[in-house]
Amino acid sequence: MKRSDHLTKKKLTVHLGTALREARLKTQWTQADVADRVGVATEVYGRMERGNLTPSVPNLRKLCLALRVDANAALGLDARDGAEWLKEADPGSEDPPRLRRLVRTLRQLGDDQLAAISGMVRTIAQHS
């Protein structure tokens, strides 16, 4: 996993935890109350709320139903929510598939092979 992917996942997990906590506080339930309704240990739910654990999809569904929170908003997909982490797109995700395949192949090559290909690419670029 790339560092940028990890940071994005962490931001998602923190955003989700904040949304869960806010929804729980509106219901005036304790963490134990939510954990019981969802079927997880109180400690597990606490880790989710603190942004240290991403719930499974079935548990996310149960949490959203129990807390009456919209899953899109909880995940930061609601445009009105304004989640900053969503605005930070991974620049590599916009590359065309052919370029991504080429980069994957290049990563498998040794230093000498990369040097040869680099020289070839520079030559092609100069004559284009």
Rank of each mutant, 00 (worst) to 15 (best):
S56N: 10
D81K: 02
A89F: 01
T13V: 13
H127M: 04
L86A: 07
L75M: 12
L25G: 01
C64A: 12
A83K: 11
T30K: 14
K9V: 12
V34H: 03
L99T: 06
P55D: 05
G46W: 04
I124Q: 03
Q31S: 15
I124F: 02
E94L: 09
H6E: 15
G76K: 03
L53P: 08
A19K: 11
S118Q: 10
M120I: 03
V57K: 09
M48L: 05
A73C: 05
Y45R: 11
R50K: 15
E22M: 13
D112M: 08
R21G: 00
R47F: 09
A66F: 01
L67P: 06
T13L: 01
T18F: 00
V40C: 09
T8C: 05
R37T: 06
E94A: 11
L86G: 08
D78S: 15
S4L: 13
T123M: 01
A115S: 12
R107A: 08
L7K: 03
L102S: 04
N72S: 10
N72I: 01
P96C: 03
E22D: 10
K2I: 08
V121E: 00
V14D: 02
L65Q: 09
G110D: 12
L20I: 15
G76R: 01
M1Q: 15
P55R: 12
K9E: 04
L102N: 01
V44T: 15
K9R: 14
R3D: 14
E22I: 07
T123N: 07
A32G: 09
L106E: 03
R80W: 00
M1H: 14
P97E: 06
